[in-house]
C-alpha cells in the first residue's frame, strides 16, 4: 500500500503548488486586469459586408 503515500504526496504537492502560485499572484496585484475581457465579448458584432 506504500504507493498510496507516494501518490498522495505527489497530488498534495501539486495542489500546494497551485495554491502557492495563486497566493503569490494575488499578493502581487496580478488580478487587477480581470475585467476587460468580460466586456470585450459584448462588442464584437459590428461587421460590414465583405
Amino acid at each position: 500500500m506504500e504507493v498510496i503515500y507516494v501518490l498522495l504526496a505527489i497530488s498534495l504537492s501539486v495542489s500546494l503548488l497551485f495554491l502557492g502560485v495563486f497566493i503569490y499572484n494575488l499578493k502581487h496585484g496580478q488580478f487587477d486586469d480581470d475585467y476587460t475581457p468580460s466586456v470585450r465579448i459584448l462588442f464584437e458584432e459590428k461587421g460590414k459586408k465583405q
Binding site: 495563486f22 488580478f31 480581470d34 475585467y35 468580460s38 466586456v39 465579448i41 459584448l42
Partner: peptide
C-alpha cells in the same frame, strides 16, 4: 459565460471568479 452576458447584455459578474 458567453451566452448569458450576451443575453443580458452585461459583462459576467466576476471574471476573476471565472478563472478561479
Amino acid at each position: 459565460y458567453y451566452f448569458l452576458p450576451k443575453m443580458a447584455n452585461r459583462p459576467v459578474y466576476s471574471y476573476k471568479l471565472s478563472i478561479l
